[in-house]
């Protein structure tokens, strides 16, 4: 019984020991029998890097952060335990950066020529390079929290700027701008219409000019022809005949001119007679208009007109009465 108890107890202890030790080795990814080499990397600050964080080379895990300690002159040194059989870059640098959004950090080993083209990072690496120390220069990339904070600040600045622009461009300014644009659009439309309307006349002018040019060309041709004929006429004596005919025509014109002169004298005398008649008429009309004379009085004084009218009416009544009652006015008796 005692042996059996001891067996079961021993078995349980051994199993538990194997579980704990085996599990610890497996979970820590420790490779027994493989040798590691420890490299020191110098950082100005290590951000969220912790002991145990993975060390990667071109994305492949090649080791772990073995220790982190403060060093002289405000430096931080991290011991990077890297597998011995890993071919490291010729001039290695260590970049500590967050591996995810959840606070995990890792160290990436790069050749200095492959380091990101970032002025701050390059400056940090150059500052961490210490010739003769054997330590790898290290730099830290901002974590997601810092990037988020930066983005938040930028967003806030943009919001502020947008607000300022909005307050600068208030409703009246926008209306002014709209009105200006509308006016500009109308002006552009008018210009377009004007150009469209002027296109046809301009085309016509251009066509006319072209036609005129053609006419001038043909006229000059005809002049040339005429000059040629004149030249030919002077040769055959036709010019003398023309001159003789011209003299005869001039004599006829002189005779016609004398007849016309006599006609003009008669017309002039009739004109004077007409002027006198008109003058007399004008004097008469002036007297009538000013109420002088019988005709003037008749035209200007309404009393005479009224009396005359009244007399005419009485005369009509008298005639009417005579026609109706002739015996009243005329009496015939034989005896």
């Amino acid at each position: 019984m005692k042996r059996r108890n001891e067996f079961f107890v021993g078995l349980s202890v051994i199993v538990a020991f194997l579980v704990v030790i085996g599990g610890a080795i497996w979970l820590s990814e420790a490779e027994l029998g493989k040798r590691d080499v420890v490299h020191v990397a110098r950082f100005r600050e290590i951000g969220g890097l912790n002991v145990g964080a993975p060390v990667t080379l071109r994305g492949v895990k090649v080791g772990r952060v073995n220790a982190i300690r403060l060093a002289q002159n405000d430096w931080v040194e991290a011991d990077l335990k890297v597998k011995l059989d890993v071919d490291l870059p010729a001039t290695p640098v260590a970049i500590a950066a967050s591996a995810s959004l959840f606070g995990e950090w890792h160290v990436t080993v790069l050749d200095i020529t492959d380091a990101p083209v970032d002025a701050v990072l390059r400056t940090a690496l150059a500052e961490a390079s210490k010739p003769g120390s054997g330590a790898w220069p290290g730099a830290t990339l901002p974590d997601f929290g810092q990037l988020t904070q930066q983005a938040n600040r930028i967003a806030t600045d943009l919001g502020t700027m947008t607000g300022r622009v909005s307050s600068a461009l208030d409703s009246s300014a926008i209306q002014d701008v709209r009105r200006s644009l509308r006016d500009l659009r109308e002006a552009a439309d008018r210009l377009a219409d004007f150009a469209k309307k002027q296109t046809d006349p301009f085309n016509r002018v251009t066509t006319n000019l072209a036609a005129t040019s053609d006419e001038v060309g043909s006229a000059s041709k005809r002049v040339n022809t005429l000059l040629g004929r004149v030249d030919d006429a002077t040769k055959d004596g036709q010019v003398n005949d023309i001159m003789n005919s011209t003299k005869a025509t001039t004599a006829d014109l002189r005779a016609a001119s004398a007849d016309a002169r006599e006609l003009l004298a008669v017309i002039r005398s009739h004109q004077q007679t007409l002027a006198r008649i008109l003058e007399t008429t004008d004097t008469l009309l002036t007297k009538v208009q000013s109420g002088k004379g019988s005709l003037g009085l008749l035209a200007r004084d309404s009393t005479l007109y009224l009396e005359t009218t009244k007399t005419v009416q009485q005369m009509r009544q008298l005639l009417t009465d005579i026609q109706a009652n002739p015996r009243k006015y005329f009496r015939f008796s034989v005896f």
Partner: peptide
């Protein structure tokens, strides 16, 4: 005291 860690180790696994 000795066996509780053993039992706990197995339980954890």
């Amino acid at each position: 005291t000795l066996m509780f860690p053993v039992v706990t180790a197995m339980a954890v696994a």
